[in-house]
Amino acid sequence: MSHTTVLSVDDLTVTVGTRRGPVRAVAGVSWQVRPGETFALVGESGSGKSMTLLAATGLAPRAATVTGRVRLLDTELTALPDDRRRKVRGRHVGFVFQDPMTSLNPVLPVGRQVTEAAEEHLGLTRRAARDRAVELLELVGIPSAARRVDAYPHQFSGGMRQRVAIAMALACEPDLLIADEPTTALDVTTQAQIIELVADLQARLGTAVVWVTHDLGVVAGIADTVAVMYGGRIVEQGPVDAVFDAPTHPYTRALLAARPDPSRRGEDLVAIPGSPPSPLDLPPGCAFWPRCPVRADPRCEHELPPLTTVGDGHTVRTFYRGEAG
């Protein structure tokens, strides 16, 4: 069975009920990820990147209304009742979060946790599960895995815990690995280890990866395709080389330009004024308009810019037509 896409998200919108009324956290985002490919979702706080992931995998909070279509392999996830969706997700999708303790139980030996899902979804016996746990811990580079399979999460360092969480996510041999800021809480040398580990596992197992991050350096290192989110929408999306070489949306351009550049030490950084908008308080037109250094078109303030194709697979939502790069 071969698939052209592992996960396909089509016009996904998430509205969350709050005390101040319904809030649109994600508005009409569409993207796909293919086998063996890494799709990076970048954005700052409140951009809707994490909610997009949760909704795409049927994990949005109860207070959220999700519309649009999500297809996982051959299954239309959005059409399934909760219990069926949970089964399909458990079998085909692995999750890794920023804080490994989100997924780890502090009072259970790691080995048991790593294969807990596999016992259920693959029908492994206890004995087989333990062997499988050791194998998985070895796979993710835990030293002396056979001994440490009985250790508890607190006996591991932050980086090792994240490895355990990755082993757990891989236990069912998922077609899709969802990684939500998995290295944000880690030191750079540990981050480099985890990135290398995921890339290596992906090459060996052909897993598709969706990686959420706010770090453009991480994106440059891992992604095949990148989508930049702002104010609940994807403002720019495309092959990673195209987006970094020829960033077209003023927000993408500003974000890349704001990083310190060693060849311009001593100069001011090109800061973006203000703060990212709250989903509670989005402007009517382009969400970046209040902070935009360009404001290319009088329509920017009141009218939502259409999605335009500017290159092969490279789309952008802006009225701006200036030179790219």
Binding site: A192, Q193, A220, L256
Partner: peptide, 21 residues
């Protein structure tokens, strides 16, 4: 180990990945 916001540089660079914690 510091990632650089340039996909080409990232692909070509040789990283000294430290082992262990």
């Amino acid at each position: 180990a510091v990632p650089v916001a340039d996909p080409r540089v990232e692909r070509e660079r040789r990283r000294i990945v430290l082992t262990g914690d």
